[in-house]
Design a protein around this nucleic acid. Structure first.
Lengths: 337, 337
DNA sequence: TTGAAAGCGCTAACAC
DNA sequence: GTGTTAGCGCTTTCAA
């Protein structure tokens, strides 16, 4: 039960520690008989190698870090599922860090990785992150990095993203085809490249439909949850209220629905709604929400697989890798489909 | 930028490594002048201590493990928020492991902790976990353990839970007071102590109301998502269908609502529904869902705080700690409130 | 094919 | 108050 070291294994077997070490790592220079014997005793004594000793020696930790703004969000939590699945197959451990949309916090977190704490990093940046010097610094220290979903445009690094521009364009066209003339786009930050793309897709569809794009079509929702709720409430109370709405992130969906309940604004009759979200509850909302559903699990898996390639394949240049996994528009009642 | 060691710091300063080490750890046996000098050079050279060397030497990793069945669930993801917050304050790192409701997987995960990989463990067990020998084994190796939410009754260990019996009893009474005569309780596993308590609270309320508790009032939902959906569909298609329902876990909510849509069963007229869930979307479902809302964030924080006390306070006996944080019944339209 | 020995970077006795 | 030194448990030359 107590901690057993490689030294004790060696003593038990009557051979040298180095032999045991090699046998355990399945080295080709050890005879298969010896390997078998070592393995047998190791399992019998329930030997578990000390990861820290190994990490110190090999400068490898078999651990990766996942840095995300928030975990209580269906996109990120499902993405973690994908990441964890791949990590487990590969025998890696997963450290989770939440930046809570704070650049300062994100910087602080990344700074710790310079010491070799992790072998790789997967990150979805905060809405405050414009420049990425804290990230490039970590990369320069030799850390393989993969961005997923929320990338940093100005950093040349591996990216796993979805087709934000196209899916937003498609969603907007869907609204327009259902009769919207004054749709708005609810954003949480224009720093975020995914938001810029979603906004661009939205505006392109508007432009093609001959709808003015200059006056308040894009609305920044800032502040805490209550402030955002108030902002949305005001929007819908306004006499010139929109007749269509795209919620660009999941957390905007409840306040939109609540504001409609409070103002008597009917979905979809008065306001057609589409949300970027992976909420399993989307089909059972009142009314069922039309969503741009991102391939969260796939993105997590793909990004993790890419990272491990970067970690394990010598000479593999991660920085040029860009993978796009497509989102799907799921039409439901909220858009009057 | 490159990795700088304590040895180089010492050389730069012209003092011994041990002095540097002690200064960095703010030891009382180092003069404040020396400390200041060391700190200055350390920050100037951007020294980041090698965690693995330190962990190997001190047998402490400043890392904790969180083992949960699933992360794409609002209770667990919010609990992680609470855990992460406390961990960050304490300067600890958080490893996440998903057991996916598999005892085998859970056992495999815990086995790795015996080598001293983490300083403490927070766990919410799988629905397959009846006996906890894999957990006691880890505990016996000296690992501080805190259970949260899904505990193991037969293990004497720290627990942070909610009032499952009482909240289920209250929820059931609420259904009965609104006219239910044939409520059912949807469960995913009777192994789980939280489910047993919730079932017991349900049955007690039924008993007090003079309702028979022997015939199929408690329904085990097993299998994958589709199978569960089919099972619930059959339940509602049955001529003797229930007039009230408690969904004991979040993932049962969507299939219940979907089945109602498909069968034309109206909530709350034909079926009054209560769900154990922290879904932010509960108020905007069709109709708004009455929930037993668990204090997920509080549970996470409390459990983490307890674990750190167990890790850091010498002689503190974690195993006797039991903390109960109360859930709240949020009455909404689905129960006909 | 196996073994001896030198560290990985840090900490904690123990000396000075 | 500061320095010297012996490891923590493991991996990896290099020698046998």
């Amino acid at each position: 039960m107590s901690k057993i070291t490689i030294r004790e294994l060696a003593k038990e077997l009557g051979i040298a520690v180095s032999t045991v070490s090699k046998a355990l790592r399945d080295s080709h220079e050890i005879s298969s008989e010896t390997k078998a014997k070592v393995l047998e005793v190791a399992t019998r004594l329930n030997y578990i190698p000390n990861l820290y000793a190994s990490s110190l020696r090999r400068q490898k930790s078999r651990t990766i870090a996942v840095v995300i703004p928030e975990v209580a969000d269906s996109f990120f939590s499902i993405a973690i599922n994908g990441i964890e699945e791949v990590a487990r197959e590969k025998g890696y451990h997963v450290l989770i860090y939440l930046s809570h949309e704070s650049l300062a916090r994100e910087t602080e977190i990344l700074n710790e990785f310079k010491s070799g704490r992790v072998d790789g990093l997967m990150i979805s940046v905060t809405s405050e992150t414009c420049s990425g010097t804290h990230i490039t610094e970590a990369m320069n220290s030799g850390l393989p990095v993969v961005f997923f979903d929320r990338i940093c445009e100005d950093i040349q690094a591996a990216r796993v993203i979805t087709d934000d521009f196209e899916s937003s364009y498609t969603a907007t066209r869907h609204l327009l085809e259902n009769g919207c003339r004054q749709p708005v786009f609810l954003s949480i930050s224009s720093n975020l490249s995914i938001n810029q793309k979603r906004e661009a897709g939205f505006l392109k569809a508007l432009g093609e439909a001959g709808i003015q794009t200059d006056k308040g079509r894009i609305i920044q929702c800032t502040g805490n949850d209550e402030e955002i709720a108030m902002q949305i409430l005001h929007l819908l109370q306004n006499p010139e209220r929109p007749d269509g709405l795209i919620a660009s992130v999941e957390k905007l969906v409840p306040p939109v629905y609540m504001a409609c309940q409070q103002t008597g604004c009917r979905i979809p009759e008065d306001l057609r709604v589409v949300g970027f979200t992976n909420l399993p509850a989307a089909p059972i909302l009142n009314p069922a929400l039309t969503t741009v559903t991102q391939p969260a699990f796939e993105i997590g898996k793909t990004a993790a697989a890419l990272l491990f390639k970067g970690i394990e394949k010598a000479g593999f240049d991660l920085s040029k890798e860009i993978q796009v996994v497509r989102s799907r528009l799921m039409k439901r009642a909220s858009s009057g489909a």
